[in-house]
Write a protein that binds this DNA or RNA. Sequence first.
DNA 1: CCATTAAGATACT
DNA 2: AGTATCTTAATGG
Length: 219
Amino acid sequence: MQSASLSSLKNLFEEPLLQEMLQHGEFKDFHEGDLIIDYGKYIRAMPIILRGTVKVYRMEKSGKEILLYYLSAADSCSMAYSCCMHSRKSEVKAIAEEDGQLLAIPHQKLDEWLCKYASWRSYIFDSFIHRFNELLHSIDLIAFGNLDQRVKNYLIDKSRHAQSSVVKVSHQQIASDLGTTRVVVSRILKQFENLNQLILYRNEIKLLRPFFSDDAAVT
DNA sequence: CCATTAAGATACT
DNA sequence: AGTATCTTAATGG
């Protein structure tokens, strides 16, 4: 009955592995706003997202919180993986951006499958590479302190996961995801709008073609 | 209607 | 870039 839910993984893994996933994995539905992983909690299973989108946050000691990345269909959380393997507490928090479903893989299987299945090895490896590159990109944006680019990156990312050029989000939400304030985000968005790169609505931002081209910062 | 909330504007730090 | 404050516009009872 649940095998239909695995459709997003069909092209990733060989049949015997898919069978094992059905057998040992646990399907979990989640809804918008659900807390999937919290800071400091032990992770006993690695989640693979089947449907929906999940936001992964990182918090520093002072309590400031920023969004690290999104997870969509067939994505998994590399953080969760490393926590499972070493029985460590979670360094991140995951919140559902929209309703969806995930498959929780028990940690005992993670290791076993690495030896047994080539497709599992390359999946884990690729997902680490992908996440690593994404984090590098984030570090660049933060280290070189360009908030314009961070907002831009945020919107493009979000639009990609929502598969729409219309992003449904409030300025306040963007601000807290990026660890800044609402007024600052509004200012930046207004600059983009003045350059005809997007159109602002209430709770909604429509991204126009020029926005996606990699031209320089506004400031 | 009114209450709530998002977003625009301005001025100051 | 961030804070404080005020105004205006949408939204949902």
